[in-house]
């Protein structure tokens, strides 16, 4: 019984990481109206950058994480301004094709730079540490930190989008781009800012992922699929729905893995497809 409870707690905490994967995609689907196929690869690229910062340059892990954030924001801003915005006049299909090409370039670029080996960032023992929650249930310190980070990111994004002038402008271009333009909003600039926010979530998730799990240059695809499943399950309602979606996928994978280790990924996909069949609009759609 404690074993089961332990598994559930681990899965919920893993759901926090999945939620961070998905937050960026939720912004890009909700505001920018396209799916970035290279989202997972950008996350993995951030993990590799984290590896370089900590291993080759010898930065302590927290410092490396802080360095990563402006880099992520810059990459997002540049991608939107330099690449995606140029295709904005064309249809959605064109933008998917561009992000698809970008995904292949990033994957193979990482393969060329770092080789095909599976990597992991060591953070001086924090990844091993755990604290006692109650009874004989323990939780890892790192998964707890990641889960709290996910919650903080969600609160932060909600505050920015619903409490600030910038957020109102971004929501305006998301709801009615033509009308937003008429009242004098700078579409391209605001979209680049939104993509910079996506870049920050990519940097945070890539940085945290590199400490918790193994990764290699081809890991991006599975991260994208998880993020996609979480976003669709959540619906385009609230960011808290993304956290719930992440926990559902993580629970499905954990229970699948208990039956048979090869069943882990499959169980996540099947639960997603079944839920999607019954609720195509997601669990928390915008009313």
């Amino acid at each position: 019984m404690t074993g089961l409870l332990d598994q559930i707690i681990q899965a919920v905490l893993l759901g926090g990481l999945y939620a961070i994967f998905a937050l960026g995609l939720a912004i890009s689907v909700g505001v920018l109206k396209f799916i970035n196929v290279a989202h997972g690869d950008l996350i993995v690229a951030m993990s590799f950058l984290m590896l370089t910062l900590t291993n080759s340059l010898g930065l302590p892990v927290p410092v490396a994480l802080i360095v990563l954030i402006p880099v992520g924001a810059g990459v997002g801003w540049l991608l939107q301004f330099g690449l995606f915005q140029r295709a904005a006049s064309q249809n959605e299909l064109q933008i998917i094709l561009i992000t698809f090409g970008l995904s292949v370039i990033i994957q193979n670029g990482l393969l060329g730079l770092y080789g095909a080996d599976t990597r992991k960032v060591t953070a001086g023992g924090i990844e091993m540490a755990s604290i006692n929650l109650f009874g004989n249930i323990n939780a890892g310190v790192l998964p707890l930190i990641i889960f709290v980070t996910a919650c903080l990111l969600i609160v932060g994004l909600e505050q920015i989008l619903y409490r600030t002038g910038l957020g109102i402008q971004i929501r305006a271009i998301a709801d009615a781009p033509a009308a937003a333009k008429l009242v004098g909003l700078r579409l391209a600039g605001l979209m680049a800012v939104a993509m910079a926010m996506v870049g920050i979530t990519e940097a945070v998730s890539g940085g945290l992922m590199s400490i918790w799990t193994n990764f290699d240059p081809s890991s991006g695809s599975s991260r994208l699929l998880i993020a996609f499943e979480v976003v669709v399950l959540a619906g385009l309602g609230s960011f808290w729905g993304v956290l719930v979606g992440g926990i559902i996928i993580a629970l499905a994978q954990t229970f699948g893995g208990m039956i048979d280790s090869a069943f882990q990924m499959l169980a996540g996909h099947i639960v997603f497809l079944v839920l999607f069949l019954f609720r195509p609009q997601g669990l928390f759609p915008k009313t």
Partner: peptide, 28 residues
């Protein structure tokens, strides 16, 4: 029948999820 309701971008990645699922099923 399952995917046609999805918007363009969703359908793209949705069909990829289906392919991934079928590959995992095939390997079992």
């Amino acid at each position: 029948a399952m995917l046609y309701r999805l918007r363009t971008a969703y359908l793209a990645v949705g069909s990829w999820v289906v392919a991934e699922t079928l590959m995992l099923v095939a390997s079992r």
